[in-house]
Lab assay of single mutants.
Amino acid sequence: HNLTITQGKLFFHYNPKLCLSEIHKMEEVSGTKGRQERNDIALKTNGDQASCENELLKFSYIRTSFDKILLRWEPYWPPDFRDLLGFMLFYKEAPYQNVTEFDGQDACGSNSWTVVDIDPPLRSNDPKSQNHPGWLMRGLKPWTQYAIFVKTLVTFSDERRTYGAKSDIIYVQTDATNPSVPLDPISVSNSSSQIILKWKPPSDPNGNITHYLVFWERQAEDSELFELDYCLKGLKLPSRTWSPPFESEDSQKHNQSEYEDSAGECCSCPKTDSQILKELEESSFRKTFEDYLHNVVFVPRKTSSGTGAEDPRPSRKRRSLGDVGNVTVAVPTVAAFPNTSSTSVPTSPEEHRPFEKVVNKESLVISGLRHFTGYRIELQACNQDTPEERCSVAAYVSARTMPEAKADDIVGPVTHEIFENNVVHLMWQEPKEPNGLIVLYEVSYRRYGDEELHLCVSRKHFALERGCRLRGLSPGNYSVRIRATSLAGNGSWTEPTYFYVTDYLDVPSNIA
């Protein structure tokens, strides 16, 4: 807008934040220059609390790290170098490059900038070799853009010569660093050979998330399962459950009422301010606690030095998902009996873990797994792929695949051998790939016309006998059925096997 004052003059007093240069501009645009008398524009009460600059400061050096910015700028000295009290560095987070010096300023003089007072450097006698002032900004957020400017702080001049310097606002972004852990990993099994893994992005990506790394490792069953005799009275049979499938998407929606109208769909109840505040506090606490764990609990591995020492970490090797089922080394339970199943799973520490690289999504279907087997899954978020990966501390989750139908069934015939004193040795093959492992066998036998009897055969007993022995049988026709019990439950009964026990007292003698 054009402003013209045809008559009258300007009068400025007691404006401590208004620089004289701005008042002189007002004289020019209003056409009143030359009308004012000496005392109409006070030299001592206008701009006496402001830094009124008329020179431009330029930054000469900028260096960044993930949490620091090192700045240096060209030296500046007023005509009387004693008038320079120091520099004021202003900075704040700036997602967009549209910041002005006066953003967030209120009537009390406060604003949204963080201000650092910096002492002037030592003055050199040689004007050509003056030290460049600077400042190291610490405690910054990774991968965050900051708006920065600097200006001088000078003393009051009796001659009211307006001098000083100020830089333009520059924008500097800190470097990326390792992201925080992925949030809320959930693993479920939808079949006997697959596990579905879902997660949420890290709360602090500290860069642009480029991919996720998912490692999985087959877990050995508890050692007590191999040692305890679950045929003993009072000892509860062990059981394991597989990871249940995901709930429906509708039930997972946030901010939804727990109660549904019987007449149909209901609208979600909005969260109160107290609920939102509580969630923010919980989120802040979780982030602080995660940072504490990362800094205190997890110790970084030592990389190899120039002395030739090897990095103890196993090298990563990509495998196809079809090879995942046989990740671990199978060892027989008892070496003397080769027909026992290889369900003991000690994992070799030198073995390469299978892994998958996930790009542009937060889910993965891990296939080719062994049925009813526990897996430990390790999830890392990465925001750099080359020249070397920059990934987060791992988040861990466990899951067990679903049982395989008929995996616990005894394959092959049940054979028998009759000894003296009416002892019958029953023999059968253990299931080759049971659900988890076989903890015991149930032997059901009966003599024709009598009630059915049951015998429990422990895992250890089966390994020693290759089956079991029935003792003290009365003469007669017998039928026997056997079924295995694994961590997933009972298998199917075998087809009945028949044998006849004679009275050993009636056996004919070869003595003449």
Rank of each mutant, 00 (worst) to 15 (best):
S203K: 15
D204W: 15
P205C: 05
N206Q: 02
N206H: 09
N206M: 07
G207L: 00
N208C: 09
H211Y: 14
H211P: 01
E217T: 15
Q219R: 15
E221F: 13
E221M: 10
E221K: 14
D222P: 14
S223T: 12
S223L: 09
E224S: 14
L225A: 08
L225P: 07
F226N: 06
L228G: 08
L228N: 07
D229N: 14
D229M: 10
D229P: 08
C231W: 01
L232V: 08
K233S: 10
K233Y: 13
K236T: 03
K236P: 03
R240Q: 12
R240L: 07
W242Q: 14
W242S: 12
S243W: 11
P244I: 09
S248P: 12
H254V: 11
Q256L: 12
Q256I: 09
E258L: 06
Y259D: 08
E260H: 12
E260M: 13
S262G: 08
A263N: 05
A263I: 14
G264Q: 07
E265M: 08
C269K: 01
P270E: 01
K271S: 02
T272F: 06
D273C: 02
S274I: 02
Q275M: 10
I276P: 02
K278A: 12
S283M: 04
S284G: 13
S284P: 02
S284W: 07
S284E: 14
K287R: 09
T288Q: 15
T288W: 05
E290T: 03
E290W: 02
Y292Q: 01
H294Y: 07
V296A: 09
V297I: 12
P300T: 06
P300N: 10
K302S: 07
S305N: 06
G306P: 08
T307S: 10
D311R: 05
D311K: 06
D311C: 03
P314K: 11
S315L: 12
K317Q: 14
R319W: 13
R319S: 13
R319M: 09
D323P: 08
D323I: 14
G325T: 15
V327C: 03
V327G: 09
V329P: 11
A330L: 15
V331H: 15
P332W: 05
P332V: 07
T333Q: 05
A335N: 09
A336R: 15
F337R: 08
F337E: 12
S341V: 13
S341I: 13
S342D: 13
T343I: 07
T343D: 03
T343L: 11
T343Q: 09
S348L: 09
E350Q: 09
E350L: 05
E351P: 13
E351Q: 11
H352T: 04
R353S: 12
P354Y: 13
P354W: 05
P354I: 14
F355W: 12
E356T: 12
V359W: 06
V359C: 08
V359K: 07
N360L: 08
N360C: 08
K361S: 11
E362P: 08
E362T: 12
S363V: 10
V365L: 08
S367H: 04
S367T: 06
G368R: 11
L369P: 02
L369Y: 01
L369E: 07
F372D: 01
F372G: 04
G374A: 14
Y375D: 00
I377Y: 10
E378V: 12
Q380T: 14
A381T: 13
A381E: 00
P387N: 13
P387F: 06
E389P: 09
E389T: 09
C391A: 01
V393I: 13
V393G: 01
V393L: 11
A394Y: 06
S398M: 05
S398Q: 04
A399R: 02
A399F: 02
R400D: 01
T401S: 04
T401M: 03
M402K: 12
M402T: 05
P403F: 03
E404M: 12
E404T: 11
A407I: 08
D408V: 03
D408K: 00
D409Q: 09
G412M: 11
V414L: 10
V414H: 06
I418E: 06
I418V: 12
I418S: 09
I418R: 11
F419K: 11
F419S: 11
N421M: 09
N421S: 13
V423T: 11
V424T: 02
V424I: 02
V424G: 08
L426I: 01
Q429F: 12
E430S: 03
P431W: 00
L437A: 07
I438S: 04
V439S: 04
V439D: 03
L440P: 00
E442I: 06
V443R: 01
S444R: 03
Y445C: 10
R447K: 02
R447T: 11
Y448M: 03
Y448F: 15
G449R: 03
G449I: 13
D450Q: 13
E451Q: 14
L455M: 13
C456P: 02
V457Y: 15
S458P: 07
H461S: 10
H461G: 08
H461W: 13
F462I: 06
A463D: 08
A463R: 12
A463S: 11
R466A: 08
R471L: 04
R471Q: 03
P475C: 08
N477I: 06
N477L: 09
Y478C: 00
Y478I: 02
S479W: 07
S479L: 04
R481V: 06
I482F: 09
R483L: 04
R483F: 01
L487F: 14
L487C: 14
A488C: 02
G489S: 08
G489N: 06
N490C: 09
T494K: 08
T494M: 15
E495W: 07
T497C: 15
Y498H: 06
Y500S: 09
T502Y: 15
Y504T: 06
Y504Q: 12
L505A: 10
L505W: 10
L505G: 10
L505R: 06
D506L: 05
N510I: 15
N510W: 14
